[in-house]
Amino acid sequence: MPRVGFPGGPRLNWYDRNPACKVGVWSGSGVAPHAATQRLSYTVPSGKKAIIEVLECSVIRKTAATTAGVMQGYAVLTPYGGPPTTFLVAWIETNTVDARSDRFLGGAVTLFAGDVLALKTLDLSTGGTGSYFQAYKGTEFSA
């Protein structure tokens, strides 16, 4: 009698295929104006995929600048073999102390082998300081 369905049985759900929790956090306070800097990097290993369940970028101006410039915390996705693309940005251009920008993304990003998720910050002000919080949480699993 012929078998019906998947040879060898049905395929396991993604969260049952050798899942592993992946977390990255960078939190800086009293950070001086700085050139663009990649604080966190996550590259999907070969033979794996990953679902990013939580992504956060937060920026707060803590002390006023002499000359305010843009402050950013941002997430960049570089698909394997493709160009880097910024897709989430927390952004401040005011000089008001405690001005803040928070950006969250939940459960919407699937990454494939060789894709790179990078979280970066920059502050193009002169003087002043800022605080930043950047984080991701994902589940990596067999492709």
Binding site: V25, A35, A36, R39, L40, S41, Y42, T43, V116, A118
Partner: peptide, 12 residues
């Protein structure tokens, strides 16, 4: 386009 570390996965 940013200062970075030449490793695939890291947290500063």
């Amino acid at each position: 386009d940013a200062y970075h570390v030449h490793l695939p996965t890291y947290a500063m």
